[in-house]
Amino acid sequence: MSEPETTAGLGLPARDSRAAADDGRGNDSDVLIRASGLQKSYGPISAVRDLSFEVKKGEIVGLLGPNGAGKSTTLRMLIGFQYPDEGTVVLDGRDVYRDGARARRTLGYLPETLPLYVEMTVREYLDHFAALKGIGGGRGGGKSRAAVDRVLGELDLTAVENRACGNLSRGYRQRVGLAQALLAEPSILILDEPTAGLDPNQIQDFRRLIRDLGRERAILLSTHILPEALEICDRVLILNRGRIVASGRPDSLGDEDQILHLARIRLPEPPDPEARQRFGLTDAGHGQTYRLAHDLDRERARELLRYVAERSGEVLEWHVGASGLEASFRRLTLGEEVV
């Protein structure tokens, strides 16, 4: 695998999307998702621009990006629901636009908001999708029933198998969605915001499950929860304005010096202009209190602490902010600079 390129001016191990597609092809047969040169516009708005990447078997890749970055459009193009203006998607060796039905046999997809047929019970819903996936020749029967029993067990849904889908909690709905995705034992899983709306316990269960599933599959998941990406992803792609602006292991994106701080301080005297500029201090509104106009890196934060202490000032608030990944994410997607 070649070393990732560096995104100009950002100092991050970011890959140009073409480069991302080119590297990591040590063993071509391991590549289960290959997106090449995807472009999609809605009228004059470019939603996705020249997007290329690969996901290998046994790899969990997180697609990160703010709202409107092009994550959903990308996922929709990967599953074949949406056609790109340009580019190709190959799932397990099959072109999803030319050989769609067969390419999608290898795919399990969980949309962000799972639409359920509310009148069906959980088992009936899964039976329906087993038939659509052609499990057991689509006639139901032994294989289909075995597949439904398997996913009901794996996702702990047996207790609610006869409950109407319309009466399920959000957590169970997500499980049913994942069960649907896993019915045909797909080699590829594409999950759109899989833990959105779940309670903390459910989130932990879901993340553990995804990690287990990722051992034998290629998993691409979109999320904007950065700790989730840190916890479960082997690699992340940060998407902004339809482009991959950074790619790499989540713990390698951003460096330790980019720990952020949110602070409010009180000084006996107004700070000099040089200090104002250096620390980005702005008036906080009441009596000699100041706050940061922007985040500071660890070194500059130490300097600020010294500055306050030397002037017998007070620290009213001092929050260690985001991780390195979060800092990188903010810089890449908002253009925020850490001074």
Partner: peptide, 14 residues
């Protein structure tokens, strides 16, 4: 409207 079309078209269905 419900998003089911997206899910249906992600299945191996022509």
């Amino acid at each position: 409207r419900s998003g089911n079309l997206e899910l249906l078209l992600s299945q191996p269905v022509r």
